[in-house]
Amino acid sequence: MRFDLILRVGAKLVLPFILLFALYVQFHGDYGPGGGFQAGVIAAGMVILYALIFGIRAAKQIAPPAIVEMMVPLGVLLYAGTGMAGIFLGDNFLEYTAFAHDFLHAHEWGIFTVELGVLITVCSTMIVMFYAFVERGRS
């Protein structure tokens, strides 16, 4: 598959739009179908497609394993940290009402941060799993 010109050029054309679509799904999740889970999987799918066509070595340059492995707990921490922020602002755990002056805005901020945490964890977990399986086959 390494020297298939059409596949390589076609993939290079499509890849940025996959990432853009993932970001759209993430940030438009309040108004249309989508959210952190879907966006995370689509973004991970972009890295996996890149790895399938250009090789695992090239994929590890755009998504270095050390950084991706650090992102796995980071997302959970961001999620739990949003919950803790609610406690520090005088509410319950995962209660977003104190984040802004207006009920809707406060909850949109809370949902935004929480979904970002979900995106980070899901995306990096899928990439890490893919790397682990591929590395096992190479060695």
Binding site: G29, D30, Y31, G32, P33, G34, G35, G36, V72, P73, G75, V76, Y79, A80, G83, F93, L94, Y96, F103, L104, H107, E108, G110, I111, V114, E115, G117, V118, T121, V122, S124, T125, V128, M129
Partner: peptide, 30 residues
């Protein structure tokens, strides 16, 4: 009072505990 997409609202707000647990499960599986 909530975003128009009810699924996102329930997922991240009303049932935030659930989703925190699910994220932790994904993390653990990874």
């Amino acid at each position: 009072k909530m975003p128009p997409n009810m699924v996102t609202a329930v997922l991240a707000d009303f049932r935030g505990y659930d989703t925190l647990g699910e994220t932790a499960v994904v993390f653990t599986a990874g």
